[in-house]
Amino acid sequence: MKAYKIIVLAKQVPDTRNVGKDAMKADGTVNRAVLPAIFNPEDLNALEQALRIKDQFPGTTVKILTMGPGRAAEIIREGLFRGADGGILLTDRAFAGSDTLATSYTLGQSLKKMGKIDLIIAGRQAIDGDTAQVGPQVAEKLGWLQVTYVEEVIELKNDTVVLKRRLDRGVETVKCKLPLVMTVNGTAPECRVRNAKLLMKYKRAKTVTELQKENEDYTSLYNDRPDLNIPEWTVNDIENDATQLGLNGSPTKVKSIENVVLQAKDSKVISGVDAEIENMMIELIKSHTIG
């Protein structure tokens, strides 16, 4: 039976779904510090698809590739706890300010360095931008086929895969050859939870930067347990054209950001008492809004 080499593209995102009142600073910028950083939800759906293939085909490896600040190593650890085999953190000031295109370029250059890959799986989109662009753009950078909106891997046999896609108004079943990039929908099965044994095994998995911060002696640790080393790649670890990285490599620029200020409307304030509700309903009936 064939074993596959799978890379999961994942992103650590601020949890924009539970934004509180203190999410914005007085100057109108986002207060990232108060927002919890989480594993992007649909990237977890993607990880689950990868782990299912690993369950089915022994010898398959699943690695996570992420780009972000140092703390984004957290999601690689989270992936290890759930069954991934390793991961790489792309972190460098040179990557800062990347739009989706510069991000895709950086991910693409990194993937090219990772040897032969059979399958790249990513979440459909990240909740901090909702663009759904990075998956298809990475595919284009590699010159691979992409299959977006995947809900289920129906069959995988040698180098042929059958995928079910969930579209706006329907379902499509596609058959194609590896290698390919697929993006997974939130409607796909949820990711399995952490495994207690893996948690014990990998709780000390860290990047060198993290260990240095904690003043740990990582040299001897990594000699004994190389699997605990989460590699950090900087701009020097990938072949690159500097004009395509970070802010400079991003065709889109943010011209302005406006805090959301609501224009107050002349509204009628109503308490829950019967007479007021009845009056409102009568007004709506009279104006032919209802009835």
Binding site: T16, R17, A23
Partner: peptide, 12 residues
């Protein structure tokens, strides 16, 4: 953008 807390104007 960003959970709806801001409105961004993007240009190329």
């Amino acid at each position: 953008a960003f959970g709806g807390n801001i409105i961004a104007t993007i240009i190329n």
